[in-house]
Simulated assay, not measured.
Amino acid sequence: MSPTVRTDLILSHARITADVTAPFDHVDVAEWLRTLPTHEYQRCAPGDHKAAGYTVDDDGTPMSINVEMIGTGLVVQQYRFETAERDYCKMVSLSDVLTPSGWTTTQVIWELRMERLDGDSCRYTNTVTSHPTEDFLDFVASQGQTFEDAAAARQEASERHCRVETPLYARSIARHAAEATTN
């Protein structure tokens, strides 16, 4: 299995926004990710989100571990925090994907941004970009599928998934910020 990521190819890309009322001065997306309980993660995409956790990699880099269904694939994401700020996080994962035909890998880049629009009016932007690995390209070819067909299916599934989770993530981050004002 090759961990070589093909950044020249895009398997899927979704950028969805949701407006929410939140005390922006108490928004902390990085802290929300580090403390996100599994059941709250599940509420953010009912039926698709299976489990979430927080750990560190061998080198001490913080990681968010997420297990979810994207279309027909069970995706195990091991997100490394590349950027962890109060209003913006960039997470990168070499993810394992269990499909009906077996295991493969993809790279997933997840960006979470909360911006103040006016007062406590905020906009959450959920961006998810996936690149194939060489392993993924070999896997789809062995199934008699083209990359273009696999990308079209993944694009549809990812966009549908992000449309569900984005407004629920926004509300969860807003609740987390509101709770921080009372502590």
Rank of each mutant, 00 (worst) to 15 (best):
C122V: 09
S172T: 05
R163M: 06
V97A: 12
E85V: 04
M63Y: 03
W32C: 00
T99Q: 00
S101R: 09
Y124D: 09
D138Q: 13
C89W: 05
E134T: 13
Q42L: 03
E115C: 07
V97F: 03
T104I: 11
L168E: 08
D120I: 04
A141F: 03
Q78F: 11
S130I: 01
L137D: 12
A52W: 04
C89Q: 08
A30D: 15
R113F: 02
M63Q: 15
E156W: 05
S130K: 06
T133W: 06
P132C: 04
F147H: 12
E111M: 06
I109M: 06
T133V: 09
A157F: 01
H13C: 02
T129P: 08
C89I: 11
D28G: 02
A157L: 02
D96N: 12
P46L: 10
S130A: 11
R116A: 14
S12L: 02
V140P: 02
E179A: 15
A141Y: 04
I16F: 01
N66M: 14
Y41Q: 09
S158M: 15
S121L: 15
F24R: 07
D135E: 15
D25P: 03
R163F: 01
A45T: 13
R6I: 07
K90H: 10
A170W: 04
Q42P: 03
